[in-house]
Write a protein that binds this DNA or RNA. Structure first.
Lengths: 352, 352
DNA sequence: GTGAAAGCGCTAACAC
DNA sequence: GTGTTAGCGCTTTCAC
């Protein structure tokens, strides 16, 4: 910086003003300074800057250690949004061990992150307390409770599930089931509650035997695909039973895959014999192609960055909760139930 | 820090020494200081530290903006390895636009990253020059050339492809094809060359008509699954021809999916009528389940972090190239060709 | 073994 | 409109 000052024949203070675009700099001087800057390929030292005016220009992003492409897109969108406001992104991916999460938070706080986004769906509730203790704006996803310094991003599961149920109802389905193999991407109880509520809205009752929940929830990465999962058997029994559902809503893409392979084993075709909707959109869903209820990663990412930015801003009193609405994307795993309007085909969304 | 010093009844200099574990600190004094530190929940300001001794404790990680779960695992492993050495990770995900990449690099250099890992497979070659210009240790993946400051991580495609070819040869396949739909995950020419070489090692000749390369390479995220891809038609024609291959090696999981759906359309069963091997391991591969040639993301990540760390170390003259060997993981998309040893089944690797 | 003081690169308050 | 100066939190000589 000093060399820039010398080269432009001014003092470092003026250089600082020019760099920060303060209006109190003479046009000609400014031009000389910028010339010197580019000549010397100078760029200001962020650390010195951070030291003097507090902020580091860094945002922390904590994501679950999970093979879900949703996370990948979230990372990308977050970084993009953060960069748009001049922030850098410090990343950390964690398992569900509370201590690990706590460490990750501490590392980011230690690096003077100006905000933290904890995009972990299934982590322990202690995160929030941890975050509240530190004085740093933060945003959490898919959590309950009231929190002084944080903003909550809530997924409107009901909205999403309802879209799925209504789509099926309109197609003519009256026997709709629900399957979940793990609680990874959202709390299963919330989804089930939404499911029964949406069902009753459409004048249907949830049949308990059509709701297949896996108790021994396993993470996909530790799940051996060759092993016969007990959940698989349960689904197979349900479909092979004498009064099977004609459609199933699944809590995740991997759950949907389970259902579809169970269907294949009992000689049911999708969507002719069984319509399947997945909540969430892992890569396989695009290829299968699976009708899904999606949470937009970029929407989540932008909301997160916005929430962090709004936190500190004087004058604004931002709502401490932001609701994200999943949307239904029609692909070709849903159709009319057997026997009704065979020749009609539902509209398939080509825009995705 | 000053308050810690006061509380411990020493000067800031001594606190600094204690924090940095310098041996010239009295045991008792040190204990008092650490006590004060934990009482006050003090942690040193990284920026001040970075300001005075140059290093920032930050590593930059640049990844392609791509929905590939490989990248996700790479990010996780990189962060883990970096954290193991006390580094924080600055992330940026970029498209293939050279300018965007150049910006990302600049941002990280501006933040005083102590090293940079550019984990982009298909980016422009200008990255290397860009990186060479800045004086910062870096590591690039899957690239050619000699570079003063950088380390190259090379994927041994030949090793991987050879394993696939040999596996097929041992099963009894003599008519082996190759398909690629895009060059995203590795340079197609290198793969094709490896393919023909491995084939001739096994005493087979590469039949040009069995090598299907898509010229109009499209990124998966922009590819509409409903559209009939010209590549799809080419594969279909190949399989429906009078002299089809009995096995196909695909340059990516998505290419393998193309091949498998083409096979389904011409009523060929996998693996009975057609064995399929994918290079790379997108999520679908685990579910299908697809025999694949894998690059271990954690191996790549660790190699990258090691390369960066070794760069500066005095006394060591680290090799400027590290070779990563893909390994073959057997799942159930490969089998004996029709008519030979029908009743035998290949061993399927359950350990994955 | 410990303290005082200089200085890392920058910004902001204050003079001119 | 621009220069001077103090100080952000830390490390590191150099005395003691």
């Amino acid at each position: 910086m000093r060399s820039v000052a010398e080269r432009a024949g001014v003092s470092v203070a003026t250089v600082s003003r020019a760099v920060n675009h303060l209006p109190t700099v003479n046009r000609k001087t400014a031009r000389r300074i910028w010339q010197a800057i580019s000549d010397l390929n100078y760029s200001p030292n962020k650390h010195a800057r951070a030291l003097v005016n507090g902020g580091s220009g860094l945002l922390g992003l904590i994501v679950p250690k999970s093979p879900d492409p949703f996370i990948l897109e979230l990372i990308h969108s977050f970084e993009e949004a953060a960069f748009g406001f001049g922030y850098g992104v410090l990343i950390s991916s964690v398992g569900s061990d509370p201590e690990q999460i706590s460490h990750a938070i501490r590392r980011m706080v230690d690096r003077n992150a100006e905000g933290l986004a904890a995009m972990i769906f299934d982590g322990p509730s202690t995160i929030m307390e941890e975050l509240d203790r530190r004085s740093i704006p933060y945003v959490c996803i898919d959590r309950e409770g009231r929190h002084p310094r944080g903003c909550l991003l809530q997924i409107d599961y009901f909205h999403g599930i309802r879209q799925g149920v209504q789509h099926l109802a309109i197609l003519g389905h009256r026997r709709i089931g629900f399957a979940s193999n793990h609680t990874q991407l959202f709390s299963t109880q919330s989804a089930v509650a939404s499911f029964t509520k949406a069902l009753s809205e459409c004048g249907m009752d949830a049949q308990p035997s059509w709701i297949v929940l896996n108790q021994n929830s396993q993470k996909p990465e530790t799940q051996d695909p060759e092993t016969q999962d007990p959940n698989d058997r349960a689904i197979e029994r349900l479909l092979a039973g004498k009064f099977p559902p004609t459609a199933v809503i699944c809590s995740s893409a991997s759950s949907a895959i389970q259902v579809m392979s169970a269907a294949a084993r009992v000689e049911m075709k999708v969507p002719e014999d069984l319509s399947v909707i997945a909540f969430g959109d892992h890569l396989p869903a695009v290829h299968l192609p699976l009708t899904s209820i999606l949470i937009s990663p970029s929407e989540v990412a932008r909301a997160a960055v916005d929430a962090i930015r709004n936190h500190g801003e004087a004058g604004t009193s931002p709502s401490r909760r932001v609701t994200i609405r999943p949307r239904l994307v029609l692909r070709s795993s849903t159709g009319f139930p057997r026997g009704s309007m065979k020749d009609l085909q539902p509209h398939v969304d080509q825009s995705w």
